[in-house]
Amino acid sequence: ESFERTINIAKGNSSLGMTVSANKDGLGMIVRSIIHGGAISRDGRIAIGDCILSINEESTISVTNAQARAMLRRHSLIGPDIKITYVP
């Protein structure tokens, strides 16, 4: 059984350190890789294959690959914290 989780990740000045791609069925974006030493890796809660539904409350539903990457990059630049809703 999968259910949504919303977490805050304190990334400070470091990068999030993950790559994503659009989910084929349009439901959010899938975590493709996690870079060791990045904020996601240090936090430890998000794993490869998890589905991200929103970043800082901006929905990732029906985004393209390019939009998913641009959204991740944009939110990575805002502030020291990032809020991610995902399904493990």
Rank of each mutant, 00 (worst) to 15 (best):
E1T: 08
E1P: 07
E1C: 05
E1K: 10
S2E: 08
S2D: 12
S2V: 10
S2L: 10
S2C: 11
S2H: 12
S2F: 14
F3D: 09
F3R: 10
F3G: 10
F3K: 10
F3E: 09
E4G: 10
E4W: 08
E4Q: 14
E4A: 10
R5K: 14
R5V: 10
R5L: 08
R5D: 03
R5Q: 13
T6P: 03
T6I: 07
T6C: 08
T6L: 03
I7E: 02
I7N: 01
I7C: 04
I7H: 02
I7G: 02
N8Q: 13
N8V: 14
N8P: 03
N8A: 10
N8G: 05
N8C: 13
I9D: 00
I9N: 00
I9F: 04
I9A: 01
I9P: 03
I9G: 00
I9Q: 01
A10F: 11
A10E: 13
A10H: 14
A10N: 15
K11V: 15
K11T: 13
K11S: 10
K11L: 13
K11R: 13
K11N: 12
G12Y: 08
G12I: 07
G12L: 07
G12M: 07
N13T: 13
N13D: 13
S14E: 13
S14K: 13
S14F: 12
S14G: 13
S14H: 14
S14Y: 13
S14I: 14
S15E: 15
L16W: 05
L16K: 00
L16C: 03
L16D: 01
L16T: 03
G17Y: 00
G17T: 03
G17S: 00
G17K: 03
G17W: 03
M18I: 12
M18K: 00
M18Y: 03
T19H: 13
T19C: 09
T19I: 12
T19N: 09
T19S: 10
V20N: 00
V20K: 03
V20A: 08
V20Y: 04
S21F: 07
S21Q: 12
S21M: 11
A22F: 03
A22R: 14
A22Y: 05
A22T: 11
A22V: 11
A22W: 05
A22M: 15
N23R: 11
N23C: 12
N23S: 13
N23G: 12
N23P: 11
N23Y: 06
K24C: 08
K24Y: 08
K24G: 11
K24S: 12
K24A: 12
K24M: 10
K24W: 05
K24H: 11
D25C: 09
D25M: 08
D25K: 14
G26V: 04
G26L: 02
G26R: 06
L27S: 15
L27V: 15
L27T: 14
G28T: 02
G28K: 00
G28Y: 04
G28V: 00
M29V: 15
M29A: 08
M29Q: 06
M29H: 04
I30G: 03
I30C: 09
I30Y: 07
I30Q: 09
I30M: 09
V31Y: 02
V31D: 01
V31T: 01
R32G: 07
R32T: 14
R32L: 07
R32C: 12
R32W: 00
R32I: 08
R32F: 03
R32S: 13
S33M: 04
S33H: 11
S33P: 02
S33K: 13
I34Y: 01
I34D: 02
I34V: 09
I34W: 04
I34L: 07
I34H: 02
I34C: 02
I34G: 01
I35Q: 12
I35H: 15
I35F: 10
I35D: 15
I35L: 10
H36F: 09
H36P: 15
H36E: 13
H36R: 14
G37E: 08
G37C: 04
G38W: 03
G38A: 06
G38T: 03
G38C: 07
A39K: 02
A39D: 06
A39M: 05
A39W: 04
A39N: 04
A39P: 08
I40F: 00
I40A: 06
I40N: 01
I40Y: 03
I40L: 04
S41V: 03
S41A: 14
S41H: 15
S41E: 15
S41L: 04
S41Y: 14
R42F: 04
R42C: 09
R42Q: 14
D43T: 01
G44F: 01
G44I: 00
G44P: 03
G44N: 07
G44L: 02
R45E: 00
R45G: 03
R45Q: 03
R45W: 02
R45L: 01
R45F: 05
I46M: 08
I46Q: 02
I46S: 03
A47D: 11
A47I: 05
A47C: 12
A47E: 12
I48N: 07
I48E: 12
I48L: 10
G49D: 05
G49Y: 01
G49E: 01
G49I: 04
G49V: 01
G49N: 05
D50A: 01
D50Y: 01
D50H: 00
D50I: 00
C51H: 10
C51M: 12
C51L: 13
C51R: 15
C51Y: 07
I52F: 01
I52H: 01
I52P: 01
I52R: 00
L53Q: 07
L53N: 07
L53G: 00
S54E: 09
S54C: 09
S54Q: 11
S54A: 15
S54I: 04
S54F: 09
I55F: 06
I55V: 12
I55H: 00
I55L: 12
I55K: 03
N56T: 03
N56L: 01
N56I: 04
N56F: 00
N56Q: 05
N56D: 06
E57V: 01
E57R: 07
E57I: 02
E58P: 00
E58S: 05
E58Y: 05
E58F: 05
S59Q: 10
S59M: 05
S59E: 07
S59P: 10
S59D: 07
S59H: 05
S59A: 08
T60A: 12
T60F: 14
T60Q: 03
T60G: 05
T60R: 01
T60K: 04
I61V: 14
I61Y: 09
I61W: 08
I61K: 15
I61N: 10
S62H: 14
S62P: 11
S62W: 09
S62R: 13
S62C: 13
S62V: 08
S62L: 08
V63I: 13
V63S: 07
V63W: 10
V63P: 05
V63G: 05
T64R: 03
T64Q: 01
T64A: 05
N65C: 09
N65S: 11
N65P: 10
N65R: 07
N65F: 04
N65W: 04
N65I: 09
A66H: 11
A66Y: 09
A66L: 08
A66W: 08
A66N: 11
A66C: 09
A66D: 15
A66K: 13
A66G: 12
Q67S: 10
Q67V: 07
Q67T: 11
Q67F: 05
A68T: 04
A68C: 08
A68P: 02
A68Y: 05
A68H: 00
A68V: 07
A68L: 06
R69V: 12
R69T: 14
R69H: 12
R69M: 13
R69N: 15
A70W: 07
A70H: 12
A70R: 13
A70L: 10
A70E: 15
A70Y: 08
A70D: 14
M71H: 05
M71R: 03
M71Q: 04
M71P: 00
M71Y: 08
M71G: 02
M71L: 12
L72V: 13
L72A: 05
L72Y: 04
L72M: 12
L72E: 05
L72K: 04
L72R: 01
R73P: 04
R73S: 12
R73H: 12
R74L: 05
R74E: 10
R74W: 06
R74V: 06
R74P: 05
R74H: 09
R74K: 13
R74T: 08
H75V: 13
H75I: 14
H75A: 15
H75C: 13
H75Y: 13
S76Y: 07
L77K: 13
L77Q: 15
L77C: 14
I78Y: 13
I78P: 15
I78H: 13
I78C: 15
I78A: 15
I78D: 14
I78K: 14
G79L: 05
G79Q: 08
G79S: 12
G79N: 09
G79M: 06
G79T: 11
P80K: 15
P80W: 07
P80I: 07
D81S: 12
D81Q: 11
D81H: 11
D81N: 15
D81W: 10
D81F: 10
I82M: 11
I82G: 02
I82A: 09
I82S: 06
K83M: 06
K83N: 10
K83P: 04
K83G: 04
K83E: 07
I84A: 01
I84H: 00
I84C: 04
I84W: 03
I84P: 03
T85H: 06
T85C: 12
T85R: 12
T85F: 04
T85A: 07
Y86M: 05
Y86C: 02
Y86P: 01
Y86F: 11
Y86S: 00
V87F: 06
